[in-house]
Simulated scan of single mutants.
Amino acid sequence: MRRRHLAALAYEVEARGLSWRFAGPGESVLTVLVPRTSRQVMVVATPVGDGWSYLWPGGGMADVADVPLVADQLARLLG
C-alpha cells in the first residue's frame, strides 16, 4: 500500500518537471528532486487513523487522496 501511494505521487511530481527515486528499506521513501539544482525533499506515506497521509520535512502533511495538491506543494517548496 505504501509503495502504491508513493508511486502515485511520483507520477504527479514528474508531470511538474521534477525527478524522483525510491529510497530506504523496501523503497519506503520517495525522494523528489529538482534536476537542475539538485534540491530535494524526502516524502513518506504512513498510516494515520483509518487512512494514509504523506509527510515531508517542515511540517508538511496531507491525505494521500490529495496527490495533485501535494505535488504542487512540493514543486513550490523546491522551486
Rank of each mutant, 00 (worst) to 15 (best):
Ala7Leu: 11
Asp66His: 14
Leu33Ala: 04
Thr46Pro: 04
Val43Glu: 01
Val67Ser: 06
Arg2Asn: 06
Asp63Gln: 11
Ala75Cys: 11
Val41Met: 11
Thr31Lys: 08
Met61Ala: 14
Glu12Tyr: 07
Gly26Met: 03
His5Arg: 03
Arg4His: 10
Ala71Gln: 09
Leu78Pro: 04
Arg39Gln: 10
Ala65Asp: 13
Arg21Tyr: 05
Met61Arg: 15
Gly24Phe: 11
Val29Arg: 06
Val70Gln: 01
Asp63Cys: 06
Gly79Lys: 06
Leu33Gln: 03
Ser53Thr: 11
Ala71Tyr: 07
Val13Asp: 02
Gly59Asn: 12
Gly26Tyr: 03
Ala10Leu: 05
Val67Tyr: 04
Met1Ser: 13
Pro68Ala: 12
Thr31Phe: 01
Arg16Met: 09
Val48His: 12
Arg39His: 09
Ala71Trp: 05
Thr46Glu: 15
Val44Gly: 07
Val34Asn: 00
Ala7Tyr: 04
Ala62Leu: 12
Trp20Ile: 03
Gly49His: 02
His5Leu: 01
Asp50Val: 10
Val64Thr: 11
Asp66Gly: 07
Asp66Arg: 15
Tyr54His: 05
Val41Leu: 13
Gln73Val: 13
Ala62Cys: 08
Arg2Val: 08
Met61Leu: 14
Leu18Lys: 00
Val70Ala: 04
Gly79Tyr: 02
Arg2Thr: 07
Val48Asn: 08
Thr31Gln: 15
Tyr54Leu: 08
Pro25Gln: 08
Ser28Pro: 03
Val44Glu: 13
Gln73Asp: 14
Pro25Leu: 09
Pro57Asp: 14
Thr31Leu: 12
Asp66Met: 14
Arg76Lys: 14
His5Phe: 08
Gln40Ala: 13
Val13Ser: 01
Ala75Gln: 12
Val34Leu: 03
Leu30His: 11
Arg3Thr: 09
Arg21Pro: 01
Gln73Asn: 14
Ala15Tyr: 04
Arg21Gln: 12
Pro57Gln: 12
Trp52Phe: 10
Leu9Val: 10
Gly26Val: 02
Val29Met: 06
Ser28Cys: 08
Thr37Ala: 00
Glu14Ser: 11
Ala65Pro: 01
Phe22Lys: 03
Leu30Tyr: 11
Phe22Cys: 02
Thr46Ile: 13
Tyr11Ile: 15
Phe22Val: 02
Leu18Glu: 00
Pro25Gly: 06
Trp56Ala: 11
Thr31Ile: 13
Asp72Trp: 10
Gly58Cys: 14
Pro25Trp: 07
Thr46Trp: 07
Ala75Ser: 15
Ala62Gly: 06
Val48Arg: 13
Trp20Ala: 05
Asp63Met: 06
Leu30Ile: 11
Gly58Ser: 14
Ala71Met: 10
Glu12Asp: 13
Ala15Val: 07
Arg76Glu: 14
Leu55Asn: 13
Val41Thr: 15
Gly49Val: 02
Leu18Met: 08
Thr46Cys: 09
Trp52Met: 03
Val32His: 04
Ala8Lys: 11
Ala65Ser: 15
Gly24Cys: 09
Arg3Pro: 02
Trp56Phe: 15
Gly17Asp: 00
Arg21Met: 07
Pro47Thr: 09
Thr37Ile: 00
